[in-house]
Design a protein around this nucleic acid. Structure first.
Lengths: 214, 214
DNA sequence: GGTTTCCCGAACACATGTGTTCGGGTTAAT
DNA sequence: ATTAACCCGAACACATGTGTTCGGGAAACC
């Protein structure tokens, strides 16, 4: 009794005895970790504590180890992403839906790229994939619908098209970082590439819809 | 005088006084590093020395630091890749040429993926890109030709299509590692995706040519 | 066969990070 | 106002890695 699932970490904690400043600090730490790891995937626990304006000991009282913290941060980021993607209408024409999804996804991917790298150094691939599950399911479902409608190519597994989706988004993020792609040009490049990649053989590649009515 | 560019590292070394076992050890070390780092990007200098059947001190007498070694290994791998790609005929129909290029590239990418990760932890992005220059130029040239022939889409920068090429190849490698894609299915998936992604808007997506006459 | 070059284990100095313990001080809760 | 929960600097133990020094022994070169 007197237990509940913590909304962020999913870990069980006593709620009765949890003081308000402790709860606030846990959030400060997660936010700081998101920020610091987002800039430098190799940042130390000390760096993160400092970023949160908190002692290193305090940090360890909330998150027992580095992997534990990284996992909490990634989970938090995925929850955020899910919340943002939930507002996107994935109905109607699959191609239009895909375009909308890209528009509201690519910045998120861009921002959490370094964090993902930190996670890859600390967490197992299975764990990372599990944490990605919620947002990934949205994409998977959309692509699957497009495939059964004959709009997206069905001669490749859905999982492959999903992997391609992430791949292109991450590539765009890398190209932006390297200053070979501007933020303005990114959505057009991504959308054009993916709409084409998803077009069934024999069918014409669609034009990228203009930045309006999305 | 009495100096020459070392074929592998590009570094200057006295040639006159270089004993044969020393030269052989340097090669052993590079080979071992390729192998060990290819399995674990985080492997230590000690691990690599052991893999080469050589003392750690000997390793340091050949490569002054970890970044120096990693750079030499990556350079060696790129030279190898170049040699392999040089045999590919990139003339004729750009789509057919692309297919041939993929067929002889994707395994190489698959095998040097972990090494690339090691390099990313040690070398600057600019340095890594510079080392990739030779093989990348082949792809760049081919894509550019396809674009000016109207076969590949020209509404995106050549650099973006090149980035997409690498991206899809690396994704396939990841999917193979995760057992979500078989080695047999990989070439078809990669080729199908890239041929489609490169098709100009309005034109039909080509079928993937069968595994014959390449 | 003499000389130079190279090998390489042992040991060292150093840096950096993780995770824990201690103890006094602070703050939220009732 | 009292109590229990929490903060947090300092110090510690530990692990792991890098790069260097030393010195005897082995191998290559002429």
């Amino acid at each position: 009794m007197a237990q509940a699932r913590d909304e962020e970490t999913g870990q069980e904690r006593r709620v009765r005895g949890r003081r308000s400043d402790a709860r606030r600090n846990a959030e400060l730490i997660i936010d700081a970790a998101w920020d610091v790891l987002g800039r430098d995937p190799g940042a130390s626990m000390g760096d993160i504590a400092q970023g949160a304006g908190v002692g290193r000991v305090t940090l360890y009282s909330h998150f027992g180890s580095r992997p534990e913290l990284v996992e909490a941060v990634l989970a938090h980021a995925m929850t955020d992403a899910e919340a943002s993607l939930r507002t996107v209408d994935l109905g109607g024409d699959p191609r239009a839906a895909l375009t909308r999804l890209i528009d509201s996804s690519w910045r998120i991917v861009d921002r959490s790229r370094a964090l993902l790298r930190a996670a890859q150094d600390e967490l197992s691939p299975e764990r990372i994939r599990a944490l990605h599950e919620a947002p990934m399911r949205r994409i998977h479902t959309l692509i699957e619908r497009g495939q059964s409608d004959g709009i997206f190519r069905a001669d490749a597994p859905t999982a492959w098209l999903v992997a391609t989706f992430y791949s292109v988004l991450h590539t765009a993020a890398d190209e932006i970082t390297a200053d070979r792609l501007t933020e303005e040009a990114a959505p057009h490049a991504i959308t054009g590439t993916l709409l084409a990649a998803y077009t069934p053989p024999g069918q014409p590649v669609p034009d990228v819809p203009p930045a309006g009515n999305r």
